[in-house]
Design a protein around this nucleic acid. Sequence first.
DNA 1: GGCACGGGGTGGTCTGACCAGATTGGTCGG
DNA 2: CCGACCAATCTGGTCAGACCACCCCGTGCC
Lengths: 259, 259
Amino acid sequence: MSETAVERVAQTLREDILTGRYRAGDRLPSERELAERAGVSRSAVREGLRTLAQLGLVEISPSGARVGALQNASLDIVGHLLDLHDVPDATLVDQILEVHTHLFSSCVRMAVIRGSDAELHAVRAHLHAIQHDELESSAYLEHLHGMVNGLVDASGNFVLRLLRQALKLQFWDRLEAQQDISVRMPQEVLAPLAHRLDQALEARDATSAAELVFELMSDHRERVVKLLNAEQARQLAGRVTSHLQHLFDLPAAEPGAPS
Amino acid sequence: MSETAVERVAQTLREDILTGRYRAGDRLPSERELAERAGVSRSAVREGLRTLAQLGLVEISPSGARVGALQNASLDIVGHLLDLHDVPDATLVDQILEVHTHLFSSCVRMAVIRGSDAELHAVRAHLHAIQHDELESSAYLEHLHGMVNGLVDASGNFVLRLLRQALKLQFWDRLEAQQDISVRMPQEVLAPLAHRLDQALEARDATSAAELVFELMSDHRERVVKLLNAEQARQLAGRVTSHLQHLFDLPAAEPGAPS
DNA sequence: GGCACGGGGTGGTCTGACCAGATTGGTCGG
DNA sequence: CCGACCAATCTGGTCAGACCACCCCGTGCC
């Protein structure tokens, strides 16, 4: 309603593709037909299709638009996948967090090895702040994200920064918007790890720091996934299968050019 | 020339933004003015802007389009950054490969821990094939990519697959199109590492496998960057500064809302 | 049966128009 | 002199309708 017409078109098609209603390789209806169906002009449809094409969800060719394989789409579809259902798909979240864990464990390694003293000091300041239990949730998150941003800064890797930002925008901000999913770790778990991490940062012990972050994020991941699974099970009355099953079992058969 | 009008518009604006001609926060000219300048219709400009907005390069608001911060853009801009100059920016390539190295080292760990015997066997088959020196370059690359794809399959992580695909499409395919950049490792370096990796995969020794892949990819990374630096230095008559310097030294100062 | 030829359908582009909301600049009242 | 208000103007959002080049497919001719 409130959205713009092209957003409506894009969202409808996007959901149809992401949920598997259109399957990879299918030919989309023509722009004229889509326009008529949605009750909008062809320009609106075209702009919507453009965004989907940029996401890698459709491929527009002079003979018509075809649905692309989800596995070849942009990383940016992750956010839209999470939006498909009221409660984010637990399996997908688990996989996001897994990548996140490994990636930022490596990030810490780079930061410790290459970061300047000032950068590491800024990270440690955020780390100290996090351990204050009285913090409001918003301040807690602010310091948490500040610390990660600081680590990415210290790593000096622009690609890593893009990845961090993509994951933050698509994942964290979405998850934090749902208050029923508490992502805050209990202090008795956080404190000892944080303390050791602080020491590792001070001593510039890259391996220890990376392992500690890995541990920390793995624990966090377990908590989030457990909570999501419970939530999902409640909503679906026990059905725990992933909504997005079609993503995970892929034939992956993709020969080169047909003879 | 041969391109479509909206692609021309998008490319022009994209390059202007990526090279820093437009800086973050700047307001773009109005659609009507852009259309007049480029000699195309407003519809073409609008579609071009849509793609840039989807890339996170511009933010379109009812009052006008503003340039976004590059660090908040989609990961998909990496490919366009590489396209900016004849020879890809060595610093950027180095950072891409660094992320790549860490990511797929972790990927191997997941694959070894969770992959099925069949999946690991497929990976090893590609690994064996790579070691045949007589292979043509295309077959070599096919097996190399087949192996990585197999690892991603074995890891069972969809997000990882998206990342792999994004990096492959944006980075590898581009680099391999430039024959002057030999990305093939000498057999005397590859063979011993590959042999040990094969053993680690067979024994399902995750840590060893991850370390070996890390080593392998680090070596590869060094070679590529060294080659690119040389190439860049030749073309620029000794000037080795990165074209994309504006990406790497960021103030990163981004407070919340202005008072 | 094979091949050339249309015709209908597709995306790509343009024109010109209207709307609602934001911006802006000037005017008027304090 | 300053602030509030208001109207002209500009912006993006949308639409209808038209034309083009191209591709695909079916028909009919050879």
